[in-house]
Design a protein around this nucleic acid. Structure first.
Length: 271
DNA sequence: AACCAGGCGCATA
DNA sequence: TATGCGCATGGT
């Protein structure tokens, strides 16, 4: 298959990771499961195939020089066992964690996360993936083998509504353009967001058309690794009402975003 | 053939 | 602050 380049990066000693529940649970939209259980996809501008055997992660298309990037992307330097122990003090959280203990929060590019979550509103995961893929095909840098990087801020900002027609994104197309405009002009400064407090960071993102509280929280959790944010979508409202009617216990609040991923995945599988 | 999808903007009170 | 409605598109 990939015999011309054949780059390969191997990371051993990986724990608390399951590729299926991490890459296909609605936090990233560019990964496709292969028949052998590996995943092919593009993380920002790196097209790779990822496979996990026991505790060994094999990344085709990357090499040793990409080690730091992928350790970071898969959040391998965070101790999830410890976080799961803390959260598991509540029986409902323990139930959700036991259902899919290998979920991790990916450290994605903040621009990619922000703009793709604009696409998720009033939409379903299957169609979201299609729109994102067409967005990359239309505006992303070619990476070879027909794959494309996620479009840069400037490239999307230079596009017109007509350029976005092939995406079939519907009413969300103009939201994408507004997002690119505000980010590229600095009205929304992605480098400043990490320095802002909970309410301020959310408020800045919500100045973008098509970004309400839920999309803002998704961008902050998945794009900025602000794990205190807990995006509340229909599934989360369902599972919270059912399993945590009194809300999160205090000790869970600093990890509410991580708890959210376990609960979201549990809800989709069981409610 | 209606109804829904990891919501949001806008109008109205 | 709190409702309610329309929204592009595609799947069931």
């Amino acid at each position: 298959m990939n015999s011309t380049t054949g780059k390969k990066l191997i990371i051993s000693g990986v724990t608390d990771l399951d590729l299926a529940s991490t890459l296909d649970c609605g936090q990233a939209f560019r990964w496709i499961e292969q028949e052998d259980g590996s995943f092919s996809g593009v993380a920002w501008d790196r097209a790779v195939n990822v496979k996990l055997d026991g505790g060994t992660l094999t990344i085709e298309g990357a090499d040793e020089s990409d080690l730091a990037y992928f350790r970071n992307y898969f959040d391998l330097d965070t101790d999830y066992s410890k976080i799961k122990d803390i959260l598991s003090a509540h029986p409902s959280l323990k139930t959700a964690i036991d259902y899919a203990p290998g979920i991790r929060i990916l450290r994605q590019n903040n621009w990619e996360a922000l703009s793709t979550f604009i696409i998720t509103q009033n939409n379903n995961i299957k169609r979201i993936k299609g729109i994102v893929e067409r967005l990359c095909t239309e505006l992303g840098e070619p990476l070879g083998n027909g794959k494309h990087a996620y479009p840069t801020i400037e490239r999307l900002n230079s596009a017109t509504l007509a350029d976005l027609e092939p995406l079939r994104a519907g009413f969300r197309a103009r939201y994408l353009l507004d997002c690119a405009k505000k980010v590229s002009t600095g009205t929304v400064d992605l480098d400043v967001i990490p320095k802002l407090g909970t309410e301020a960071a959310r408020a800045v993102l919500m100045t973008i058309l098509g970004v309400g509280e839920k999309v803002a929280d998704c961008a902050l959790l998945f794009g900025f690794y602000r794990i205190e944010y807990c995006p509340m979508d229909v599934w989360m409202k369902r599972v919270m009402a059912e399993m945590l009617p009194d809300g999160f216990p205090d000790y869970a609040l600093p990890y509410a975003g991580i708890a959210q991923q376990y609960l979201f995945h549990y809800a989709r599988g069981n409610l």
